[in-house]
Amino acid sequence: MIAILDYDMSNLRSVAKAFERLGATCKITRDKKEILAADKLVVPGQGAFADCMRLLKDYELIDTLKEFMDSGKPYLGLCLGMQILMESSDEAPGVEGLGVFKGGVERFSPDLELKVPHMGWNNLLIAKESRLLQGLPEASYVYFVHSYYVTPQDKRMVAANCHYGIDFPAAFEHKNIFATQFHPEKSQKIGLHILKNFTQI
């Protein structure tokens, strides 16, 4: 069973629907026991970094998430769910992230003279072999909507980058921890392929 974390941050239905299409059983939940008993955990996220961390704290889920990650079972963070893996974010100075990875989250600089949010379909630049992205056609397009991106100190966990003015990490893979800045649940066939890879890990 795949647990999809419910902490009032986004519509989780599209994530659940995508997994159901693949024949996976999933449950939208914030029950600690259910989360820890699940085979896999998906943490979606939308909106603001500070709200996201505050809700995780209010629902007393932070330790549960860390415990799940420590168990070695596959964990997938989506969009803001990727950003909160970092120590902090420029979007919310002073607010601590989960701190799973060293580094922060930055906003696309105005110097780049780009439209922000980065919104729409952009292609993946594969950075290393990964279980999450294996079998994808070269330069596959996926759907992004975000104004901030992660800046990890250790780049070895980056499975793919994306170019928007600069190259930024679009996907992580480190041991049992996976994350994407884009929305696989909105990325049609390519998105399904990635989620299918995750279900098979």
């Binding site: 239905r13 629907k17 759907y143 909507v145 929305h183 909105k186 990325s187 049609q188 998105g191």
Partner: peptide, 8 residues
């Protein structure tokens, strides 16, 4: 629509 389609 959200059930049938995977586009934004």
């Amino acid at each position: 629509t959200a059930e049938k389609c995977m586009m934004p």
